[in-house]
């Protein structure tokens, strides 16, 4: 399984973690990989913790289980750190990306001694600035693509432009803002 990149998303219902996982599957697919993007459905309500997953591989993916030993974890909402063991099974040489307005040190303290790399990005600031509304999933998508080295920035932005044109065919006015959010997050994640 070492040649498969496994990513786990933690979010809350309504924040778009599932959509982000599906978009990540999309962009990875466009680079020629075999992909899986799927949500784990729990109680269907706004605000409830939800999990979504990605597998990205050079070989066909046959396994259909959830992901227990991810290489990367993305946390869409830092309040989840209080209630969900987000680093469970996370590879020590992997990384976690957290959306937060707070400092990285504070996040590290909330991770129960996780030894791997910790990245943060303020998706709220970016989203409000680029889109005028709070959609954390777009900035986080860019952040994890960069952290996991899934593709180069230019290729990623080109792929996303095409993907947004398809996804937002009925509201093209939001494409520019989403592209800006991606660019900002790519630069600001650290």
């Amino acid at each position: 399984m070492n040649d498969t990149i496994e990513i786990r998303w933690h979010g809350r219902g309504g924040q778009g973690a599932k959509t982000a996982a599906l978009l990540l599957a999309d962009v990875a697919f466009n680079t020629g990989s075999y992909v899986q993007g799927f949500p784990e459905y729990g109680p269907e309500r706004m605000g409830a913790p939800i999990t979504a997953y990605n597998r990205i591989s050079k070989k066909p993916v046959r396994v259909h289980s959830n992901i227990y030993s991810p290489r990367y974890v993305v946390v869409v909402d830092d309040s989840l750190l209080d209630s969900v063991d987000v680093t469970a099974g996370l590879a020590k040489d992997g990384a976690i990306v957290i959306n937060t307005e707070k400092g990285k040190e504070e996040m590290v303290k909330g991770l129960g001694g996780y030894k791997g790399k910790v990245y943060t990005v303020d998706a709220k600031k970016i989203s409000l600035e680029a889109l005028g509304r709070y959609f954390p999933n777009t900035p986080l998508l860019a952040a994890v693509v960069k952290v996991a080295g899934i593709m180069e920035k230019e290729t990623f932005l080109k792929e996303m432009q095409a993907s947004f044109r398809h996804k937002f065919a009925n509201k093209p006015e939001v494409i520019a803002g989403n592209m800006k959010a991606l660019e900002m997050a790519f630069e600001e994640v650290r």
């Binding site: 799927f38 459905y41 259909h64």
Partner: peptide, 12 residues
């Protein structure tokens, strides 16, 4: 086909 596991999973 299997609910969610394949019905909602994006694959090649």
């Amino acid at each position: 086909q299997d609910g969610f596991i394949t019905s909602h999973a994006v694959e090649n």
